[in-house]
């Protein structure tokens, strides 16, 4: 953990990988349909490795494992890692443990984008990218950009506080537009609500392949920035006196974290609390240095969302529980716990 024992850091890395691997395996093995656990593992090995194995599953079962379960697990890992790591970055940049990746308007912007797409029937496009996903992505980035412009206009120093306030204003504005549109188009209300609750219900490999390159690159970049966040923890002024170009670094980190969040939101809707509670849990357990929090958030977020999705699809089988309900169900009590423990300090 500390700068000194590299072995300790290696152990945590191994533990993180093991957690992700365990969550993924559980997600693969368990599901609403009764398929032999061993069979799912053998089938996955057959598909993912160059070797050929006979899983002994029926064609339908093979298809369920490969086309439905695996991509869902994979997307859960990617979305969870993205939201948690973006959350860790936001918390570091704003020096606020209650910051989450939706703070600067990603959620409201994505929501408006998705609503516009539903209302105009842009969904289900033939191309690689679904209209709703694209609109949500663009909407999310537009909202963050607007937050930035408003925040900087109000405060030349681009302080964290003015950005947060701008984020609140922009989010309210976008939410108002979104609600107006939704009320004018009540026939689309079901689709809109479903999107807002977030979920991986009908995710396939195409969503995984869309998010994968973006997530891998941005997660790698962010995993290197923990030290920078640690420097920022001493405040803008002192960090600047330590040689850090605070305003530029802040823009850079927020752009990366927001891109990552927007990409995750585009394929999975608004999944609440992951970006807030996962980095915070990591902080409580492993201490508050970001060079530990950021990389561990990748693993913790991936595993947490994969497990949440497992709960979402199995608890009330064969119906789905919106994943936002699962994450909030565990998230809300945790939130109170955070408030109590941080209040003590």
């Amino acid at each position: 953990m500390d700068a000194r024992p590299t072995t300790a850091r290696f152990i945590w890395l191994v533990a993180g990988v093991a957690f992700v691997f365990g969550a993924a395996t559980l997600g693969l093995v368990l599901g609403p349909t009764d398929i032999s656990s061993w069979g799912t593992i053998v089938e996955t090995a057959d598909r993912l490795t160059p070797f050929t194995f006979d899983s002994g599953l029926s064609e339908t079962q093979k298809s369920i494992v490969w086309n439905l379960r695996l991509p869902r697990v994979a997307l859960g890992l990617l979305v969870g890692a993205s939201l948690a790591t973006a959350g860790a970055t936001y918390q570091g940049v704003f020096r606020n443990p209650l910051a989450d990746p939706y703070l600067l308007g990603v959620a409201a912007g994505g929501g408006l984008g998705a609503t516009v797409a539903f209302v105009n029937d842009w969904g289900n496009g033939e191309g690689v990218f679904d209209g709703v996903q694209l609109a949500a992505f663009v909407g999310a980035l537009l909202a963050v950009a607007l937050t930035w412009i408003v925040g900087v206009a109000g405060d030349r120093d681009r302080s964290a506080a003015s950005l947060i306030l701008a984020g609140v204003a922009v989010a309210s504005f976008f939410t108002a537009l979104q609600t107006f549109l939704q009320q004018r188009n009540t026939e689309d209300i079901r689709e809109i609500y479903t999107w807002f609750l977030g979920g991986l219900t009908t995710s396939g490999w195409s969503e995984v392949l869309q998010l994968l390159p973006v997530a891998v690159v941005l997660l790698l970049v962010l995993s290197l920035t923990g030290r920078t966040l640690d420097i920022m923890a001493v405040g803008d002024e002192e960090a600047s006196m330590l040689g850090l170009a605070v305003p530029q670094v802040r823009v850079g980190l927020l752009v990366i974290a927001s891109l990552l969040t927007a990409a995750a939101v585009a394929v999975s809707g608004l999944i609440a609390f992951v970006g807030l509670i996962v980095p915070h849990a990591v902080r409580l357990i492993f201490g508050s240095t970001f060079r530990v929090i950021v990389p561990l958030s990748i693993f913790a977020g991936a595993g947490f969302l994969a497990l949440s999705d497992l709960a979402a699809r199995t608890i009330l089988t064969p119906t789905e529980i919106p994943i936002g309900v699962i994450t909030a169900f565990f998230g809300a009590p945790f939130f109170i716990f955070i408030l109590r423990t941080t209040g003590r300090r």
């Binding site: 700068a3 640690d230 923890a233 508050s288």
Partner: peptide, 12 residues
């Protein structure tokens, strides 16, 4: 009045 991150260790 320095800003000191809440749970940071002395070494870090």
């Amino acid at each position: 009045i320095p800003t000191i991150p809440s749970t940071i260790r002395v070494f870090d």
